[in-house]
């Protein structure tokens, strides 16, 4: 992955030198070996901070909203899943196409940093990483480690819909094969088998842990309301009090608000400090939208109408 990293830096440098963009948003080495952190580079000299590998889990697309009114253009590094967010932001008129340079990198999957950190000598320093198909090789100052994707990858990556960016101006790295995972909705199907009471009990248990830190909402690339209903004070639709009832209102409302727009990047799931499996909620909606309206994953190609923003005479009307 060294070559991808090198090319990334070269392209970023070129964009900045030629003044095509004022800012490059990408991944930089984090404070743990197996973590990266978003970096904001505004000078050609700064590009050495850019990195790439199996620790770039963050979806950076949301940051484009912060710069939508900035004077200059912004370049952003996206994976396959992140690129769907960019399409959604464009389709929602949150950002304008001519102000964004999309650097797409086909992604071989992202590892769960905590699982990796548990295996690696704590004071080791990352040297380089390589994709070996079913596993990643992680070379460190304390030796080489191999991480099987099956055991160490984020769940969302195990059933990745498309590792290749679906929109990009500059593509770095080789296109990767698109696999069709039959088990994509396996977890949702398991939940669907439960009776109403058991489903309710399952989610009650999850939502009761919610701290209402709003990490899931804030990281979400399609949560772009200027004033969110959950922040509104007058009227206060949802109380700041955390309890099962208020927490449930929050999560169900959010899931339905992003229905037909959620790009299934899985960031809500990754950032939840209480490990609430939020992606399952959104996946249920994805599955239903697919079953009912034959709707592809939002953002999977430009200009798709939102399933809930479009009327077709043939739409099912079971409840009418």
């Amino acid at each position: 992955m060294m070559d991808v990293m090198q090319q990334l830096r070269e392209q970023a440098k070129k964009l900045l030198e030629e003044k095509k963009v004022d800012l490059v948003i990408g991944f930089g080495q984090g404070t743990e070996l197996a973590r990266t952190t978003p970096v904001f580079i505004d000078s050609p000299e700064g590009v050495s901070a850019l990195t790439w590998g199996p620790f770039c889990a963050n979806n950076l697309a949301k940051y484009l909203v912060d710069y939508k009114n900035a004077e200059g253009n912004v370049a952003i590094v996206v994976k396959g899943c992140d690129s769907r967010s960019v399409i959604r932001l464009l389709d929602d008129n949150q950002i304008s196409r001519d102000k964004v340079v999309i650097i797409g990198v086909p992604c071989a999957g992202q590892l769960e940093w905590q699982k990796v950190a548990a295996e690696i000598k704590p004071d080791a320093v990352l040297k380089e990483t390589a994709d070996n198909g079913d596993s990643f090789l992680v070379k460190t100052s304390a030796g080489d480690y191999t991480f099987n994707k099956k055991d160490y990858m984020l769940h969302r990556c195990l059933v990745c819909e498309n590792p290749n960016p679906v929109i990009s101006d500059i593509t770095i790295g080789k296109e990767l094969p698109v696999k069709n995972y039959e088990e994509r909705f396996a977890e949702v199907q398991e939940l669907e088998k439960l009776g109403t009471d058991d489903k309710s009990a399952y989610w009650d248990k999850q939502f009761s842990r919610c701290l209402r830190c709003y990490a899931c909402r804030n990281v979400c690339s399609v949560c772009t309301c200027q004033i969110c209903v959950f922040d509104q004070m007058k009227p206060m639709w949802v109380s700041k009090r955390t309890n099962l009832s208020e927490n449930t209102v929050f999560h169900i409302t959010r899931a339905f608000h992003v229905a037909g727009r959620c790009v299934d990047c899985g960031e809500c799931d990754r950032v939840c400090p209480m490990d609430i499996p939020l992606r399952k909620l959104n996946q249920k909606i994805h599955k239903d939208l697919g079953d009912l309206f034959d709707s592809p994953t939002p953002g999977s190609k430009p200009g798709l109408l939102s399933a809930l923003g479009e009327f077709c005479p043939g739409d099912p009307e079971e409840f009418m």
Partner: peptide
């Protein structure tokens, strides 16, 4: 620039103690 403005750090922090008061 990278902060997403969530409350995770403050809620998991053992010393953060800010609170709000309201009538329910």
């Amino acid at each position: 620039k990278k902060c997403i403005g969530c409350g995770t750090c403050t809620y998991v922090c053992p010393t953060c103690h800010c609170f709000d008061i309201f009538d329910y």
